[in-house]
Design a binder for these strands. Structure first.
Lengths: 342, 342
DNA sequence: GTTTTTTGCTAAAACGATTTAGGAGTGACA
DNA sequence: TGTCACTCCTAAATCGTTTTAGCAAAAAAC
């Protein structure tokens, strides 16, 4: 019925050599193992002829390596992560790795469960956005000495590889940009989180505001239902009528925020300065177009894979800690409203 | 050093039973194989105690099933696909399957290459958006009798499982909606494609326009560089000054289109009727908010996994062909502009 | 003309599970 | 007492690789 895929054994049988020899040759160890050039060619030709490809399961079972890279993010449907996934996917497949993705929902238990599953699978490498309390699990992975890179955030106390951006500086500059354009009362909407990326963003904002001797106005949203979040934002805007600008610390906060403004403060949309962290096409299309601190997606993705590939080669044991720069994309929403005249 | 994970063999050795017995018991075949209740309990308890989990690679090698589901879409960074991925992921992990994702870029060669890789991996199930010319590869999969579901589009000539939406009817209704709101010169911006989903959308539009005895104004963009596409749209809008509405046949066309309008026809943004296929948060946030034909994401995702799980059980061989209804979400961009007053 | 080295290859174990075929012991029945 | 059936369990093959250890013949060295 189904013409079974040829195995190394079939090759061996057909060519009257041993399985061992075939394996050596196919793994390029022919010369090293002193297999004659003649036999090498015979095997290679035949393998090509019957279009042989190794059974990766067997290979993995034997070697303990699965050629699978896990890409764990908070939520794969977030455009930021989805686009990164795309970039990683391309390199990975090119190099013969497969990518398993999963969303940990920034939840520790979830993270742990997923990692458990993957450990059983002998996953080859991990690219992870760790949830807040995942330090223990990350340490466990570290102990196992399996290739792992954190990104977006990290644990300063741990000696892990990571790729992040300079959040503090980026927010600092973006806030200064707002100030430079004449905004005095800048609100900062963020989530209540002690994780590095959020803390740093807040720091950058605070620093800029303090330097300018303006008042700091921060709304820290608890991790709650989006609708509740919208309510809280609305209250915040109501309670701070003197606001003339808002800085949203993540793209989904911006999304929520724009909705709130649209529904309850339509006038402010074109009046306020608006700045967001994490850019995407829609902020560009929005009216007014939204100024954004854009993470260098391509660069992050490439860097992640560059490091991953090096780790997979397993040679040296240097720790890679990369901090990239974000880019400020100035658009309508942060231009001085007095000078502007569309 | 590394305390090796316990295997079935360790359990057997520790309890003085055979590997076979352990395997039977752990697979729930204890009673069937007449293993005594006592031994069954002993094994189960011990397995739990040492926290045994089977090595899936070995399992897969032996059984030829890998518990991996491939989710192949055009481009995982498209919000539509990313959100679907999220939904599928949740069910899959819950049921003990892993999800490998990949983007075929709607390219046949790419599709073929990826499928080749997966065949070698003994992937358990496929959820696929096929590229236009992938019929051959899909047929090959069909022959292999491996669980497979197409979605978003399908090959009418093939007896495959699929989940799609009623594209024709959805566009028909949405176009009628525009007509009902007073728009007379409705442009339809789509991509040049013979695939079912695009043909059906075009059909729906054409039917509605024809019934109303209006002129059909279709722009079929070739698969090209986005910038070229924008140029072509611009020309189209220029060449059809009498347009009073546009219907974009996919979300990325809308994205491009809004950008073009924003830059070159800013006045039209609030004047024209605008309709898009595929909804997302940003169309809601946009000013004006964009009316959309929304695919029932949850429903599609759940249906896909429901079918997949049934196929994986491998019992009956009925072909599942599901056509779901899309939902028209009326927003500002399609309301009669004369009556409207924000 | 032995001994040693090199060449060219292979047997067999291992990875960790599943599954087929069968074996030892007990009890029942004639 | 011999046979049959039943209970409870196990040996060994198998999936497709990798890898260790080693063997036979030819070549080199003495």
């Amino acid at each position: 019925m189904k013409p079974k895929r040829p195995s190394i054994k079939d090759i061996a049988a057909n060519l009257n050599v041993s399985v061992t020899t075939v394996s050596f040759v196919l793994n390029g160890k022919g010369p090293e193992m002193r297999i004659s050039e003649e036999v090498i060619q015979k095997i290679l030709n035949y393998a090509k002829e019957i279009n042989y490809t190794p059974n990766q399961l067997a290979q993995s079972l034997r070697t303990g390596k699965s050629n699978v890279i896990v890409f764990m993010v908070e939520d794969i449907s977030n455009p930021f992560f989805a686009r990164l996934a795309r970039i990683i996917e391309v390199t990975a497949y090119k190099k013969g790795y497969k990518v398993i993705f999963c969303s940990n929902e920034n939840d520790d238990r979830h993270t742990e469960e997923l990692l458990q599953v993957f450990r059983d699978q002998k996953v080859t490498g991990y690219i992870i956005i760790p949830s807040a309390g995942a330090k223990k699990q990350i340490m466990a992975l570290l102990e196992e000495d399996v290739p792992m890179i954190l990104f977006d955030r990290y644990f300063p106390e741990l000696e892990t590889n990571y790729v992040v951006i300079d959040n503090e500086n980026a927010t600092y500059k973006a806030t200064k940009h707002l100030i430079g354009n004449g905004y005095r009362n800048i609100g900062f909407v963020t989530i209540a989180s002690k994780q590095t990326q959020m803390m740093d963003r807040l720091k950058g904002y605070s620093k800029a505001v303090k330097e300018a001797k303006f008042q700091s106005r921060v709304l820290e949203l608890p991790f709650v239902d989006p609708l509740v979040g919208e309510g809280l934002m609305r209250n915040f805007f109501d309670a701070n009528p003197e606001l003339d600008a808002v800085f949203f610390a993540t793209n989904y906060l911006t999304q929520r925020g724009l909705l709130v403004m649209r529904e309850h403060f339509p006038g402010k949309l074109n009046e306020w300065g608006i700045m967001t962290f994490d850019d995407n096409e829609f902020f560009h299309i929005h009216t007014p177009s939204i100024s954004a601190v854009a993470q260098p997606l391509e660069e992050i993705g490439n860097k992640l894979m560059e490091i991953m590939l090096e780790l997979l080669k397993g040679e040296k044991k240097t720790v890679h800690q990369v901090v990239l720069k974000a880019e400020l994309r100035e658009r309508d929403s942060s231009r001085s409203k007095h000078a502007s005249s569309i």
